[in-house]
Design a protein around this nucleic acid. Structure first.
Lengths: 105, 105
DNA sequence: TGCGAATATGTCACCAATGACATACGTTGC
DNA sequence: GCAACGTATGTCATTGGTGACATATTCGCA
């Protein structure tokens, strides 16, 4: 979230928290979900860039439409393994994944 | 493996193959095991840098000595999730993990 | 509005990953 | 030789992730 937007929300009475603050995770746990979220976002971006439906994408990476939806939603039942394997199957390379994991834009 | 060493081995009659060639994996599958190997290597490096035994390390990240040994050996029963969570629990940050995943030195 | 396509959510049987434990192997110092 | 310590390997009961399926919701577009 942009600092500007956060400032506006907070001055309007909102308390803006990230996943870590909200669920009181350790720093490591918080970073883990951030990484998962980043991978999920990248998966969706990659899929949309190719104009694939979730069903098409699922067929390509050997999964199901519902699981693809859950991947993109970073559902708790989705592992980083699955995200990484799917991204690789969709054509991403190590460099690209490294960039996503490191949160570099 | 350095190109030089590979050349020497091959001229000596060896066939040098990476995991992908040997097991005939798809490019994506091969990259996946490479990433796993890189994470495993980094885990060991991090542990040794702190002069922790596997047992100590296990206690810190909430696992067992045998599983740590398997992590460092990139055992098939070890998930990327576990590797990443352990690395984060051991103090690695996203930047560092991104570097490892991308295979940049 | 309605209708088809895409996406999201819920459930489940199956299999894979986990921590824990036992035990084997390797190394170092006596 | 043999401890003491660290690491590797095998096994197992419990837990967690998976694809598949059904169904609900949202999205375009006429």
């Amino acid at each position: 979230m942009k600092a500007e937007k956060r400032r506006k929300l907070e001055s309007a009475g909102w308390r803006v928290a990230d996943a870590g603050e909200f669920l009181s995770l350790t720093p490591g746990e918080a970073e883990f979900v951030e990484i998962k979220l980043a991978l999920a976002r990248h998966l969706r971006e990659l899929r949309e860039r190719h104009n694939w439906t979730q069903a098409e994408f699922a067929r390509r990476v050997g999964s199901s439409q519902s699981r693809v939806a859950k991947m993109e939603a970073a559902d708790p039942t989705v592992s980083v393994d699955l995200l990484v394997r799917s991204l690789l199957a969709a054509g991403a390379d190590r460099r690209e994944l490294g960039r996503v994991v490191a949160a570099r834009r």
